[in-house]
Amino acid sequence: MGQCCSSKRQQVSQMAGNEVRDLSMKTGLNIDELKSYYGEFIKDYPCGHVNKKQFRKIYRNFSSDDAKEREKVEQVFKTFDQNNDGTIDFREFMIALSCLSKGTLEQKLSLAFYLYDENGDGVLSFEEVLDIVKAMYSMAKDQSATANLPPAEVFAKGLFAELDKDKDGIVTLEEFMEVGCHDVIVANLLLANVAVDGIEEDYFE
């Protein structure tokens, strides 16, 4: 356990400048704010990660503790714990908090794109968009809500065609943002899996 903790601490302490800048862009926090949060995070969690119970406790400090908020926390933690080890690191932690907080539509879409880009190559493939749709279908509390929808693969093909503006077989961040920022229905589809609040129609007026 001590060796693991030491390894994690070393990994976190070596965040490069470009990583900090990237995190700043994704969370909307400036670098000084991130450094301050980072110092507190490592002081409280020297292993460099938090588990679900700790994350839930932290979020309660600035949110109501009602059933809706608890469900939102559970979903965001699950989404960012991509290797299913029951923990998230500092970078994931800050992005997860950003998803839960009130941000601009552009910030939320940017965070969603980062999340959906599973292999980190900076673009979305059809397979990654299909994963978005599959997750959306599986998250539907009322299965009748998806009963009249086409199979996930058919739905994903339509969504991918809409996002892939230049028809080159990939979706860039710019394409993702352009479509999401101009279509409330698509925006809510793209943001459904990161448990942020829905976008209202009047946002686009």
Rank of each mutant, 00 (worst) to 15 (best):
N193K: 08
Y59N: 13
V50E: 04
L97W: 01
A156T: 05
L159R: 02
A67M: 09
K52E: 05
Q54S: 14
L109I: 04
D117N: 15
G48W: 00
F77W: 03
S13D: 06
Q143A: 11
Q82Y: 08
A156K: 02
F93R: 09
S64M: 07
F90L: 10
I31V: 15
D22K: 12
D81N: 15
L124I: 05
D85P: 10
Q143K: 12
T79Q: 08
L23T: 08
R60K: 15
Y59P: 00
M177N: 07
N30T: 04
S7R: 10
I42L: 15
A161L: 11
T27A: 03
D66W: 04
D65K: 05
S13F: 00
S144F: 00
E178K: 15
P151R: 02
D202K: 09
C99Q: 07
I185W: 01
K167T: 04
L163Y: 04
L97V: 13
G122N: 09
D85A: 11
P46G: 12
Y116F: 15
I199S: 02
L159W: 00
Y37W: 13
T27H: 02
K35D: 08
G169A: 04
Q75L: 13
I31K: 11
E106Y: 09
N119I: 10
H182P: 02
S24L: 06
G158V: 03
A147F: 01
D183S: 14
L109Y: 04
E19L: 00
K26T: 10
M136F: 14
E200I: 06
S13N: 05
P150L: 06
K53L: 09
D22A: 14
G2L: 13
R91A: 10
I185C: 05
A187T: 06
N193Y: 00
I199D: 01
V171A: 04
N18L: 09
Q3N: 15
L149W: 00
E178Q: 13
N193E: 11
A96C: 12
F77A: 06
K108V: 04
L100T: 06
M177I: 15
V73H: 02
C99T: 09
F113N: 08
L115H: 10
C181I: 06
G120A: 09
S24D: 03
Y137N: 08
S36A: 10
Q14E: 14
D202R: 07
I58A: 09
K72Y: 01
S125F: 01
N30L: 01
A152V: 03
E175V: 07
E33Q: 12
F176I: 08
D166N: 15
E175D: 14
N18K: 12
I132D: 01
S24P: 02
N84D: 10
D164I: 00
V76N: 03
D168W: 01
A112D: 06
A16Q: 13
T87I: 06
D202P: 12
L190Y: 01
I132Q: 01
